[in-house]
Write a protein that binds this DNA or RNA. Sequence first.
DNA 1: GTCTATAATGGGATAGAC
DNA 2: GTCTATCCCATTATAGAC
Lengths: 193, 193
Amino acid sequence: MARTAAPGSRERILDTAAGLFYRYGVRAVGMKQVIDAAGCGKNLLYTHFPSKNDLVAAYLRECRRERARSAAAAAGEVPGDDPAAQLLALVGEIVTTVGRPEFRGCAFRIYLTEFPDDQSEPARLARDYLRDSRAEIDRLVARLGVTDPGQLADRVWLIVEGLYASAARSESAGAADAATQLVRDLLAGARER
Amino acid sequence: MARTAAPGSRERILDTAAGLFYRYGVRAVGMKQVIDAAGCGKNLLYTHFPSKNDLVAAYLRECRRERARSAAAAAGEVPGDDPAAQLLALVGEIVTTVGRPEFRGCAFRIYLTEFPDDQSEPARLARDYLRDSRAEIDRLVARLGVTDPGQLADRVWLIVEGLYASAARSESAGAADAATQLVRDLLAGARER
DNA sequence: GTCTATAATGGGATAGAC
DNA sequence: GTCTATCCCATTATAGAC
């Protein structure tokens, strides 16, 4: 239970910081910039987040929550229990995400690129997210009942990585279509056996 | 003693800087770190490279030269003039590159992630490289004579992006096989029509 | 009592001067 | 090469406003 009087201050600071971190990069954004943008005093920020690392960790945890919410919503719209349909929905959700105008790349992948050898909490959060994302694909592919699920999962994962990377810089249109169709073809090819 | 700098000094400094920039990131490496690692004086470095931006630009130009050398060697081993074989060789060369133990990602993509809104010379060099790489794929795909070359090029490019991204963090083995086989399938499918 | 504003700390950055 | 100037960083401490 937070003993802060203003209930929204933590969220407001975190939202501001998250927007800046995502837009300009964690390393490029200083605490002063966050403070100025949030319109708060230095002490307030440091009482809520004792260090920049804590603020960054909260940012990545917020990203994770958002990703989980979006993925759950997309998975919830798939009728029945077809793993192929769920894989398509998973890729479709990423296609939607990378198509948003504010999309600049996957926050976790960006963080790990910015801090390659990092072992702190943010790096752990980023790696956890990527591991879990990959595991989710493995889980769905395993339920397809194909002869070589590991190989198929590798390919789907490669396409997901390509989609995130491609959309992060160039226009996402071509990448989105390519990813969608490639996964569709993979699933169709797997079903034939 | 030589009043002109020792002939190898510029290269030695650049090699040292390149290794550090690539390994730890451009932002994370300071000029003092480069000077200490190169074992040179500050004046010598600043004589050859008047600013960090100049040093970074030289680093990326060196990366470009290395990539061109490696790509030309791979293309030279393809007998005849078959664009499909050249595309496979292109992907194969990247597979070899990302499989090297020191591989940590594509230097140009890493730079643009570190400096997203940058308009300086290094950013221009990075974007030029990516544009030219994409154009090379477009050029080869166009020579295949398929009905929708733009679509096929989008897919090959997505796989290349996925290969670089995937290999930058996780083990490259699965990604390499996945990319090779996906491109092979794409080219086989295109030939059937 | 909760916040803001500001100063000060200590470190490291690029870069120039000698 | 060393020494210095200037700036920005994260963080802490102080002092005052509502």
